Computed example of a mutant assay.
Amino acid sequence: MTPKRIMAIVNQKGGVGKTTTAINLAASLAELEQRVLLIDMDPQGNASTGLGVPRDDRSKSTYHVMTEDLPLDDAIRPTRVRGLYILPSHQDLSAAEMEIGTTEGRTRILSQKLDEAEMGFDYVLIDCPPALNLLTLNALAAARSIIVPLQCEFFALEGLSQLLKTVEMAKVSINPKLAIDGVVLTMFDKRNRLSAQVADDVRSHLGRAVFETVIPRNVRIAEAPSFAEPVTTYEPASQGAKAYRRLAREILRKHAERKN
């Protein structure tokens, strides 16, 4: 399989909108006629639940792909969103680190499985766990770029420097082609002065590395996972859905400019 782009959605801090961004960005790219695979690398499996895969129906999952001889193609399944497929997670994935910890090439298992897969995708998005662990390193080894969701709160920049150091380490040791697509500001509340201050602070530190699109704090975004849908289908006209579509278009535009 030779996707145009493999992107890891990564932040070791929880509660920043990482899985929400993975689900809704994947759905928005599919809506823009891209063929998209979302790989759920988080043992919590929230991306899988949010796209309608029941927890008791994950006999073929990321865990089985990472620890057994199961081909990636055999575990992929379609979602309700046209053009969007998912490789679901399983709670046993939390034990995968121990199982593959002594395996030769343990950071490149996912990359190898993607290389061997035959299903073609324009984009592969990897929803990473909220930790800088072996599962995340597998995602960084497989990805061409990363997207970092960052919540608009007081401690937004805390931990980001460690994440960026890990990305640089991954570039040196396992994936010299890895790049940062950008930081996406999430849970922005325009009624809250702190959100604007944080956004300004992040942009002053990171400049053009921050996406223009900002994801608002939006009740429809929060509601959608309980209906096993992305916000783009749950409430297509909501501000949250519009924001994720803008983010998808910004990413497509950025990638097109890099090609040229």
Rank of each mutant, 00 (worst) to 15 (best):
M1R: 04
M1K: 03
A8T: 11
Q12G: 09
V16H: 04
G17S: 02
T19F: 05
T21S: 13
A22E: 04
I23A: 03
L29G: 07
A30S: 13
A30D: 00
E31Y: 13
Q34H: 08
Q34W: 00
L38P: 08
L38S: 01
D40Q: 02
D40M: 05
M41S: 08
G45R: 05
N46M: 05
S48A: 14
L51I: 12
G52M: 11
P54K: 10
H64Y: 14
V65W: 03
M66W: 06
D74H: 09
R80H: 08
L84W: 01
Y85T: 01
L93M: 11
A95N: 10
A96E: 03
E97S: 12
E97P: 09
G101N: 09
G101Q: 02
T102C: 00
T102Y: 13
T102V: 10
T103Q: 14
R108I: 12
L114M: 15
D115Y: 09
D115V: 10
E116A: 14
I126W: 05
L134Q: 06
T136R: 01
A142W: 05
A142Y: 05
S145P: 03
I146R: 00
E153P: 06
F154H: 04
L157F: 01
E158K: 12
G159Q: 08
G159M: 10
Q162R: 13
Q162S: 14
L163D: 07
L164M: 15
K165F: 03
A170W: 01
A170T: 05
K171D: 07
S173M: 14
I174E: 01
T186A: 02
M187W: 01
K190T: 13
R191K: 10
S195P: 11
S195L: 08
A196D: 07
A196Q: 13
V198G: 03
R203E: 13
S204R: 14
S204P: 03
H205G: 01
L206H: 13
L206Q: 06
R208G: 08
V210D: 07
E212I: 11
I215H: 00
V219W: 01
V219H: 04
E223S: 07
A224N: 11
A224Q: 11
P225N: 06
P230V: 10
T232F: 00
T232R: 02
Y234V: 12
S238C: 11
S238W: 04
R245Q: 14
R246W: 02
A256S: 13
